[in-house]
Design a protein around this nucleic acid. Structure first.
Lengths: 300, 300
DNA sequence: TATTTTTAATAGCTTTACTCTATCATAATT
DNA sequence: AATTATGATAGAGTAAAGCTATTAAAAATA
């Protein structure tokens, strides 16, 4: 039994005539006859009485025609489901983000994504890099927005933007009035850091090590916001990514000073599985994010 | 797209493994791979991501698997419908009967039919022979219970019983005490008849003509019961089929006298289309009716 | 780092099943 | 009796689906 056989049967019930039904189905009369016979043999039930003048459906035949119609409708619906999924910017999308990106990037991009791709249903998952990578691999997430690190080569990456880090410090700190600062001036300074597992911690540690700065071991923050409040309270120093910094670089007791070139920087990337079916979607999304963030960063 | 492809897809979604899914479907792995690929091409949508380690279904794939499951369920249900119709003594049956048979035969056979074949749903249609034959031909009726007449050779017939006609007359008539009577004694008598269109009228007329009796043209009855009442009221004569006669041959002013051999007789037959799908059903029904009526007639 | 293992895709051939044209058989109509 | 209408049958051709053997690529293991 296959879908075509059911079409033959339905046409035959409608027209009560083998040749006409065959014409309607664009096959020859013997073909239709044969397939109907095959169907009867397979179902082991006589679907109609044939005579040279009349085709009379049996009750069994009529019941089966009715069921056949619902099956063909379902098949049509299946094809329409497929069609609706053909549009890349439609359907659900599970995005993973790291905690040092999510709260600052999302307000910039969510409104424009919702406006540009209203049929995209976003689910946002905030987690640390190693968790996100695992989830992406398992297929639990569709793509990630995070800072590019070594070891991500097995994934497909679309670079979104390079995000400079700036020096955050209390507005009572002697350096707080500086317009710019050189990374090497941090030599010997104690710097506050995020807790283990945050990729920004490792990156910042790297820059500090190069500059000769020292981690302040008395405290490890669990979020950038905690870190920011600590700076204000403790008169400390830290590195914060640009998107988390207010435009005027001075707010609630904290001042922000950009570094002189070459500034410490991290690359924010859209990561997806190499063989993901939604590459077209990611391309468009990356393009949109790139533009939106470029506009935002230009405001500094 | 066909049903098998959907089975492959469902197995693959369940096992997330091409070879295992192929095993489950009793085909080779390349066959399953090929058909899945064909399905994707046909639906023009990627149903899953493949890698050498993982099979991850896309949202489109999952939606389509869900729909595929309902389609296969419907297909299964279609086969079960066919199966249920395989039992010949089940389902609806439209039976046509003539008015001179229905009221007398049905009480005899309906209880035993309902008891023997409880899954048979009977619809009874009372009409004159020519109407019934037309309806049978058109497929509106499945079979007929009527008196066999010339011109019915194109149908399939199963003889049920031979029904003798008896002489019905007022209990005040001089012949009313006779045990038996010879048909030829009717010579010159006036006999009451049914209206045109009743086959019993034509048959009775035939017997009367042979015997030399004359039709009483002053009245034509539209039913046997009217005829019976007329006999009582008008002191007339008529021929009535045995099943319409009370067992003691005397009731409400009417007496019944059987004819000496050779008695006038009609053959009651089950008629169906030659190519009817339900010949088995009719055979069993005829057998049952034959037995039930034989038992009833033996009581006279 | 090289080797083995796992897993899906590909190539090439075979088989199945569907379709076609031509013809037959039967019953209805002329 | 001849013609027409209609479905069934026969036989050949084609397309689809199946198989085995092999390849390719990634992961696991040595």
């Amino acid at each position: 039994m296959n879908f075509r056989d059911l079409e033959y049967l339905i046409a035959l019930e409608e027209l009560k005539h083998f040749r006409k039904a065959a014409d309607k189905c664009f096959v020859s009369q013997p073909t239709l006859s044969g397939q109907i016979k095959k169907l009867e043999d397979e179902l082991n039930v006589q679907l109609m009485e044939r005579s040279s003048r009349k085709v009379i459906f049996t009750p069994a035949g009529l019941d089966i025609v009715a069921k056949a119609k619902t099956i063909l409708l379902e098949a049509k619906s299946l094809k329409e489901i497929a069609k609706s999924h053909n549009e890349p910017m439609r359907g659900t999308l599970h995005i993973g983000l790291i905690p040092t990106v999510a709260p600052y990037l999302l307000p910039v991009i969510i409104p424009i994504i919702k406006q540009t791709f209203p049929d995209l249903e976003l689910y946002l998952h905030e987690n640390q890099t190693h968790v996100l990578l695992k989830q992406l691999e398992e297929g639990e997430l569709d793509c990630l927005l995070l800072a590019l690190l070594p070891g991500m080569e097995t994934f497909n990456k679309l670079d979104l933007y390079d995000e400079p880090l700036e020096l955050a410090l209390s507005d009572k700190h002697p350096w707080s009035e500086k317009e710019m600062i050189d990374l090497n001036e941090l030599s010997g300074e104690h710097v506050l850091m995020l807790a283990d597992g945050h990729c920004l911690r490792d990156q910042a540690l790297g820059f500090c090590f190069t500059a000769g700065a020292i981690e302040d071991n008395s405290f490890k923050a669990t979020s950038l916001e905690t870190l920011r409040h600590m700076i204000s309270a403790e008169n400390g120093l830290t590195l914060l990514p640009q998107l988390s910094i207010p435009l005027n670089r001075h707010q609630s007791g904290v001042k922000y000073v950009p570094f002189q070139s070459p500034s410490p920087v991290r690359t924010i990337t859209l990561l997806s599985r190499n063989n993901s079916a939604r590459q077209v979607c990611f391309d468009q999304l990356a393009q949109l994010i790139h533009t939106a963030v470029a506009e935002r960063l230009a405001e500094y």
